[in-house]
Structure formats: structure tokens, C-alpha cells
Design a protein around this nucleic acid. Sequence first.
RNA 1: GCCGACUUGGCGGAAUUGGUAGACGCGCUCGACUCAAAAUCGAGUUCGAAAGAGUGUGGGUUCGAGUCCCACAGUCGGUACCA
Length: 858
Amino acid sequence: MSDRKNPYPFEQFEPKWQAIWDKEKTFKVSNPGEPGFDASKKKCYILDMFPYPSGAGLHVGHPEGYTATDIVSRYRRMNGYNVLHPMGWDSFGLPAEQYAIKTGQHPAITTQANIDNFRRQLKMLGFSYDWDREIATTDPRYVKWTQWIFLRLYNSYYDTEQQKARPVSELEARGWSREQIDAVRLAYVADGMVNWSPDMGTVLANEEAEEWKSKGFTVERRKLRQWMLRITAYAERLIDDLEPLDWPESIKMLQRNWIGKSRGAEVNFTCGEHTITVYTTRPDTLYGATYMVLSPEHELVPAITTPEQKEAVDAYRKACAAKSDLERTDLAKEKTGCFTGAYATNPVNGKQIPVWIADYVLTGYGTGAIMAVPAHDSRDYEFAEKFGLPIIQVVQPDDPGTPWRDFVGYNGTMVNSEHLNGLSVTEAKAKMIAWLEEKHYGAGKVNYKLRDWLFSRQRYWGEPFPVLWDNETGHHCALPETELPLLQPEMEDFKPSGDPRGPLVKATGWIHYSDRYTRETNTMPQWAGSCWYYLRYLDPTNDNAFVGKEAEAYWMGGNGKPGGVDLYVGGTEHAVLHLLYARFWHKVLYDYGLVSTPEPFNKLVNQGLILGEDGQKMSKSRGNVVNPDDIVREYGADSIRLYEMFMGPLKEVKPWATKGVEGISRFLARVWRVAMTETQEGTWALSGKVTDEDNGEVTPVRKELHKTIKKVTEDIESMSFNTAISKMMECTNAMTAATKVCLTDYVTLLHLLNPFAPHITEELYSLLQAQYPALPAGGLCTQTWPAFNPEYLVENMREIVVQVNGKLRDKVQLPVDADRETAEAAALAAPKVQDFIAGKTIRKVVVVPGRLVNIVAG
RNA sequence: GCCGACUUGGCGGAAUUGGUAGACGCGCUCGACUCAAAAUCGAGUUCGAAAGAGUGUGGGUUCGAGUCCCACAGUCGGUACCA
């Protein structure tokens, strides 16, 4: 504690009000059918991205988004909504486990301690969460339903006719074999090249690998058998349904790019007795294909390689396999490759073209094979130049200055392409696809960059897969739902051992389910819990369903409007991970009618990053991290809340400035001192400046107040909190300057400020209530949001700007309803204007009524 | 490389449909109160002595451009051989 006396006694009343809200459950909201539910009110679901409870506690980025949603939540409540505003913990995850391993403590213990600390910090900031709905993804009652949803995925396939998930039992009924069914499940097992981190002893999703690499962990490619989720089945819907969402355009763009839809064609080339299928987005350039490239891992490589080339090909494939992901991408500037000795036939002209292998062709995308058109593809061009392969022009750029070599644009005309000659690229593309389909050489095809989601981890601190393996048949099957939740076994040693099956294999008693069945030892990634947490808040204690029907329909239902979460605020870092995964899971649940809307989050807002005082990203190593605990101790919770909203627009990146918090603290102190004065003894008492005498006069303060009501209301709606605060500052300054302030005016200002700074406003209101019993009972936060009186905003006279040749020269006062002639005459008569137009001819006079007059003279 | 966002005083940032650039706050300067300081209150603060010039740079549209159009530069974020 500093020895400086606080400018207002927040250290006394902030904890007091927090205790009151806690005890009275002020912000508890009931579900339909529960006592206290008010069906006459509209619903509003305002959601924060729940935190991962790390050992470091809150950083200043958390209160930024959380204050924004808290302001909107409190504002909506005062406007008569049933507001669902919950908080919980994304408490599974690698950091907790890494920390547990380091300290030798069980992750359950450290996680619980971290949650307790996070909860303390959030309560210290006065957020209006309904704490009765608190959830943690590690809670067995939550794990049960995460596993239940997984089993739903496991027991589903994607019906491409109906475009939705259906139960695999349908396929059984149609006589599908066990193997056939396993091959189409939405949760399936596959061998594949995966990102394996030896440091952490686990595999990682493509989406995560980079993040961990940047934290200094090694990640390498390794062929392992893993659980996958078939998110690719939803690629089309994940793109299409993005369109109507009220999300930042940049986030939609990131998701679209990540899904990476492209249209083109698959074309069959014959190569001896084999057929090699390539995928191309430029079938129009088929006549320019001068060679073909397979990925080194392509299954036909051994079959087509000639004996003379076998040694070289094997060596090249071996070299590629040894390369890490990093080498394959970062050093990829220089193209490498190897001729297989084989030739393929180009179906359009029967030409024989050499077949190469090169690692610039990826196994996982398209068919893992391409036709190379070096004239019109930069990568093929580079490769052809290096290995001396022929380059044939088939597109002539429309812009005469552009050379045709390495021309990859679409604004060109076909040449050297027989029946395509003279067509535009776009026309030729369509014509070639039709031609290929007619001749059965290929077909139009849509491709996605999105890969299936690698869903298993070899870690202890995650949900175990509710899956059993049959020791006799080697098949997997679902654990009966009645046995959920399946929790991890108690283990002394849960360190990764390097065994790709994960640490759970060491729990020999646990994995032995019966003589016939063995448990799956993989666990789910942290994303599993965060994929559906927003649904659990709706009905957090339901043990019969992941969410009750009625609760889901009420809080997520649209009633004609889009529905879903009404406002979701969080950082951009989840643009393609959590926000894509959650949409995927939601769609599966939607296909089964288990949720009401096709999309979970109707409106998304990204708060901007808060940088350190030095303008750099906050980090321990830079030593520029600001701890909310310290700020609250020095300046109070209201000050940090208000400051973070005042720094600038919510969405922008902005640097922290502790001096700015001081300024905000001074503002709150001014609000305090409008009503309060310090006594001889150094305590605070009502000053008498705020008085219930009111003759109904529309004073300048009252006018300012009503302008403020209008501005703050509009600004909260548009989430422009910084300008709302500056307007309240102006209003407060007007009240400070006045000798007397009407009680109702002052209380109205407290209403406006309450969502931003709930503690000080409640305290002042309760002090005034004690003095003036006529004031409505109860806290400000339960009262109605003020409305402005439009009559108070009407001005009789208005200042009109007078310009000469576009430059401001004078101002004149005119009645608001002055006509053009009056305005023009007044402008021309203005003394300073006279000086500037002296000796000049007036060519034109532009009058914008109520704003300005511009005199054009020369 | 590609995609996206951004660029306004010493600093964070304000500016309806194009119509007074710099609201509000920080910092700074001066003053009041005080033995003194802190706190508080008041005045001033884009640059320039002035004419004037000013919203990243260069052009354009317009009576009038921070705002619209074209070109370029810089900063930040995403992505990275996706055929």
C-alpha cells in the first residue's frame, strides 16, 4: 500500500460492494421454468472467451475484453433484458501439465489453485458474472459431456446427399462392413505424418505446431497412428455460413483462407499401365504441361520408376523423409527434385512428358501429383529453369507490356492450345473442364487446404478417449455412455516417456478394461473442452444432457433473428483455431437437432492487444508486464476498468500508460467530490452541493447531461467506450464548475457511469439514498437506464462558419431556422469576410444550412 | 511472395452523409491555495514572431478532402511451395 492518501476511498467500498453482489447474487439469471424467471423480458447472451487459468494470473489483456462485455451486460440489464453473462475455466492443457511435472505436484492441485486465483482477481474487478453458472472443463461433470459429444462424432458419418451428419447405425442397417464404417466416421483412426514433439512427448495439430515451435519446443514429422476428426466434411458449410455472421471481415477472411477453397479439375494422365491423377486449378493451361511432378511420398513412385533411375529416386525420397518440416519450407527457395525415368501421356495432345518427383509437391493436398506448366506457374517455372525442362507459352497476357514467361494472371488469351485458342483464361477453363468430362479424361473438382483435425494427444492432463480396443479383432468400439465420465487414473508418474502411446499406458490396471478389451490411452486436446463450453453455461448442472432443450432454445434461439451468442468478445489469436473447431462441433450438434442454430456465435468482436509502456508486446523477458493486482491496489478496480476502456477503440492495438490510469482516477475523484467533501477529521461526507431543490429550470448542466445521455447510449450500442467516457468527463466538469447540482441530474450521471465504474457509483448512490429517502430503493444496477429529453437538446441559435475560398475566416450566430438568404447576407456582412473579399468578385456562394457558408471569390 | 488492417500534435486518441481538424485524457507552462510541498482548483498548450502551413508521400475529383479516387512508402497482423 502506498503512503499516499487515495483521492477517494475505493479501498473501502470496492470490496464492500463485491461482497454484497456475491452474497445477494445480484447478477444471477434464471432459466425458463426456474423460480425468478421473467418470461416478459428479451434475452441477451454476452460471452467472454474463458481464460486458461495459468499460474501467472490475469494479465491486463483479460480485463480489456471482460470490461467491455461487462459494460454491455450491465447496460442491457438496465434496459430490461435477461442477460446471461457467465465465466468459467479452460483448465485442461499443456502448460498446467508442464508445470506439474516441473514441481512434482499433481496438475489437478495446481489447476485448482490457479482457478481460485483467477476467480479472486475477476471478482476484485467487479464483473457482473452469474457465478452460479461457473464451469471448468476439468470438472468430471463437464468431462462427461465432452466425452459424450466425442462419442456422437465417433458414431456419426457425413451423409453427402443430405449434407449433414447421420448415425453410422444407418450404414450398419444397409449392411456396411465394420471396416467400411470405420473409414467414414467423423472421429476415426488413421496413420499419417503428424507433428510430433519429442520435448513434450505428444503430437500436435497443424494449427498448434507453429505456436509451440515459437515457444522453443522442437516439433518434427513422424508417421503415427492417431485419432482424427473429419472437419473437412464441413469445409463447404464452414465457408458458406460465415457470410451472414456479424464478425470482423478480417476474421472471416482468415477462416476462408485457412479452409482454402479452390476450383479446378482432376485430370488423368496415363503412365504405362498406371493412371496418375493430378489436381489443377488451371485446366486451361493443359497444352502447356511439359512435365509432371509427384510428391516424393506418392504411392505410384516405386511402380513407375525405371531401373536406371531407381537408385537416384530412392536416395531423393530418403533425403526428403529425413528433412524436418522446417527444412522443407524455409529452405524451399531452392527447388530440388529427381527424374523417375517414366513418361506420362498428356490426354489433350498425346504428348509424352517426363515424370519427376519433387518435394515442392505436397502429399496432403489435391492428389499429391501435378502437371507442370512452367510458362504460367512460378514454382514450375523455377523448377523448369533449374533442370532445363521445356517451357511452352499457352497464355498471352492482355497487357502488351507484360512478358508471357512466368505470367500467372487470369487476364490473358489462350494461344498454342488448339480448340482453346483465342478464348480468355476464364472461358478456356470452363471449356476444358467440359471437354475433359465429355472425354472421361477428368472432371471439375473443388479442393480445400483444410485438413482433418488431429485430435489425439499423448498427455495425462486431458480427457481420455472413451474408447476400447478389442484385443481379439483389433477393432475399436465406444465405451458405454453409462460409464462416462471416464477420468484419468490416479498416477504418481505422469511424465511423458517418449512412448507414442502416451503416459496412460503406464497405468496398467486402468488400461485393462477386461480380458478382452483394453482402453485407448490417448487424451483429447485442450480445444475439446472449449469447443462447447458456451452451451454448458446455459444449463451447467444438468446431469442428464449436455444442455437442456428448453434452456438451449431460450438462450440460443433466434425467434426470427440470427440467434446464438449475441456478443462474443476475445482476442484474434483464436481466429482459426477455437473459432473454427467450435463452429464444426456446433454444426454436428445442429445436424442432430441438439442445438437451435447452425452457427454458435452471431456477433464477434476482437479486442486489440494491449502493449507494454514501451510499445512492445508485454512479456516477462522484456520486463514490461503490467499486473492488474498492482493497478487495483494503487488506483482501484473502477479506475483500471475505465482506463482500459478509455485508452482507445476496443478493437485497436494500444500501449499501456500508467499515467493515463492516474488521469482516470482523477476523473473518478472529481465525480466523487461533486457530492462529497472531506471533513476536518479526514473522513468524507456529503457536501450539500448536490441538492433535491429543483425548480425545473433547464440549466446548462442539465442540457449537458442530456447530451451525455444520448452520446453514452449510442456509444455503448456501438461499443465506442472511449468516446462515451470522454463525454461523461465533460459532463462531470460542467457539474464541478456549477455551484449547485440537482439531485436527479447527478443521479442520472451515476446511472450512465454505473456500467463502467460500478463500485463508486453504487457507493455514491447509497450515500445519497441515506440523505434523500425519496430516491428509489435498491442498487443502481437494478434500475432503469435513463432516457434523454430531446427538447433539452434543441438550440435556438447556432454558430455558422464562414469560409472564403474554402478557408475559415469568420463565424456568425444565426437562428437555427435561418434561411439561405439570411445566412448568405449575414456571411457577406461579417467584418473579417469583408477584408478578404475586398476588391474581388464574388463568383459563387455555397450555403450549407445550419453549418457553413462558403464564399468563392477571385 | 500473397492476403488483410493501419498511418492525425510531445503522447493515447476525437472528428455524422465530404462541411470549424486536434474533443477527452496524459505531459508540459503559468497562476491560486500553502511556511513549503503534495493534493486540489483556474488559465494556456498543432507548428510558426507573423503572414501562413498543417491529418505518411505524390497526384486527382470538389465551392470545400483526415474522410472519395489513383499511384507509392512505412508499420503491424495472418499465411507460407495449397498446383
